[in-house]
Design a protein around this nucleic acid. Sequence first.
DNA 1: AGCCCCGCTTACTTCAACGTAACTAGGCTC
DNA 2: GAGCCTAGTTACGTTGAAGTAAGCGGGGCT
Lengths: 130, 130
Amino acid sequence: MDEREPLSPDMFDPACPSSVAPFRIADKWGGLVILCLQDGPRRFSELRIPLPRVAPKVLTETLRALERDGFITRTAYAENPPRVEYQLTPLGRTLLPAISACREWAADNFDALLAARDRYDGVPGAEAAA
Amino acid sequence: MDEREPLSPDMFDPACPSSVAPFRIADKWGGLVILCLQDGPRRFSELRIPLPRVAPKVLTETLRALERDGFITRTAYAENPPRVEYQLTPLGRTLLPAISACREWAADNFDALLAARDRYDGVPGAEAAA
DNA sequence: AGCCCCGCTTACTTCAACGTAACTAGGCTC
DNA sequence: GAGCCTAGTTACGTTGAAGTAAGCGGGGCT
């Protein structure tokens, strides 16, 4: 009658990989920063170009979090003007397929998501567009 | 000297799929709920089994958010006892590959992430374990 | 001297997500 | 009529991420 497997008793069982999901990968901007680093090391001010809406404070926090998680390294050069380079580690690179999968999903389906939201929220014209 | 492409001027250009990332897919528990629904419709109390640490209020909020985004449908049956079923929509199913990719990453690399954190935080013994 | 650049830091505020606990409604059974 | 069931709701408080605005330190330029 029901061919579905019973649901596991606790997804937070440490043995269950799903338990990881709530331990979010870094923060709101982490994925974007990782994408910016995929072609090679980048400097702080270089990262600010594609992310102009991210305040320096937030960017610093994001970079520190990514460093803490072992996804990037931070290298400061005692030059003039000072230079700091951020670079993906091998562990950081392992994230690229997953992030790309999310990006690909977004490219394909984000419009549908927004349309669904409009429909749910009763935005005028959303029904017609559905 | 530098073979890397220059970084795009603004990832928040609406034309750029990366701009989606900060519009998080639902919330902290959304991905887990979607996984729970992949084998077929589930009831509210059924979903609570694998997610015992999620308060009913939060589960309700999560389900509403997923419904709003068009990922699941909610169907209430006027039976006794009352029954409500949540089910993935086709759009919701499109998320499964991306979520699976994240899950797979976690299964493979979560230990490395935790070890990196311990090293960064200077947890005793973390160096030896590295 | 005064200004710029770089890579931040600091202080403060705002906001949404998350969580706890208690409670509800309608119908069922004991 | 006491208590259970389902599927929530309500009130309240906590937390932490994010944003705003400003400043800093050291060198170089003019």
